[in-house]
Design a protein around this nucleic acid. Structure first.
Lengths: 188, 188
DNA sequence: TGTCACATGTAAGACGTTACATGATTTT
DNA sequence: AAAATCATGTAACGTCTTACATGTGACA
């Protein structure tokens, strides 16, 4: 599965399951999520498959940490995945399924109301991403993406993906709200 | 699960599992997918829960069809789902995870190449959606979305969602390709 | 006679979420 | 003394995909 390779990729330097969970919640939340229990289970499976090794290390605070590092085989698997072409698949969008079925509700502009609520959600997410982008620039001490490179540049690209996507979707909400409201007026 | 309600919604008139599968593959593929076996299993479960009833009907060609229709309870459940607010959650995007980890590959512009391949994929999908939109207009005998209403208008909105989204993502690809290529030149 | 479209299902396994269980150290 | 953070794990359940199995009727 994809999570296998993502963990392998994040383990360019040795980390614990706890560290990895934190990375998911911080920098990857906008395009990938993974449960803590899933991460631990997957790490164990990867170790069984000799793609990772682990050792227990005392922690400065709290219980001992199991620190994983990838093997040559692990790195190879990751590289094959990366070189094997982009994995693009349409994902499920429940809010669109809801919109498609909105004519089941008796209210006149249920769909428009729905779109307005979706818009509010998107705006929140967009604000988070824009803050992330700012933080990235500050952390790296740069003023624009041209000064970034390597991992950081790639991270910028993923943030930018979210920004452009959400901006377009907010436009879509506005357009839909208008279109659906016009319909409502026309019927009245 | 969401599939429950989507099936309930598509069953505004009686249909068989086969019909439903066809609907998923035609009009919903751009925001939802469902396997044939999952559809049949879900229909059975919904019938067990008294949200659907079914009867076997002879088919004009092929074996008998099991035709489902929803009960009052089924309709109620659907309406609650629709009125309960939009379900927006970030989905997993493997191609972005790949991009984020691309610095693991030795090639200079692996990420740019990746983005270019993603772009090609998006363009194909966009062309399909634009064709769908055209077909919708022709089928309904209209020249613009203002003349649509009800289910058809909502369907138009979901198509438009895909069009705006993909257009923005193609722009993102172009921007990323440029940015990543500039980096490559700067290093050379 | 073969193959396409119609039509329904089972089984196994992969993947993901939620809830629970445990316990140390640091901060308030 | 309580709460937050650090840290790892198990169990149960729910969802989704892949593969397999079966059979009819139409058409070439």
């Amino acid at each position: 599965m994809a999570l296998d390779k993502i963990l392998l990729g994040l383990l360019h330097e040795p980390k614990s399951g706890y560290d990895l969970k934190a990375e998911f919640d911080e920098g990857m939340a906008h395009f990938w999520s993974a449960d803590q229990s899933q991460i631990y289970a997957t790490l164990k499976r990867l170790e069984d498959g000799r793609l990772l090794t682990s050792e227990s290390r005392p922690s400065s605070r709290g219980p001992a940490r199991r620190v994983y590092r990838r093997t040559a085989a692990g790195r190879r698997l990751l590289q094959e995945w990366l070189a094997g072409g982009p994995q693009v698949k349409e994902s499920r969008m429940p809010y669109l399924a809801q919109l498609a079925l909105m004519s089941e509700l008796p209210e006149a502009d249920a769909a428009g109301h729905h779109a307005a609520r979706v818009r509010a959600d998107f705006e929140q997410r967009l604000a988070l991403l824009q803050a992330m982008q700012q933080r990235l620039f500050v952390d790296e001490g740069v003023t624009g993406p041209e000064e970034l490179s390597g991992r950081t540049l790639h991270e910028y690209c993923t943030i930018r993906h979210g920004v452009l996507r959400l901006t377009a979707l907010i436009q879509w909400c506005d357009e839909s709200i208008q279109l659906l409201a016009r319909k409502k007026r026309a019927r009245a």
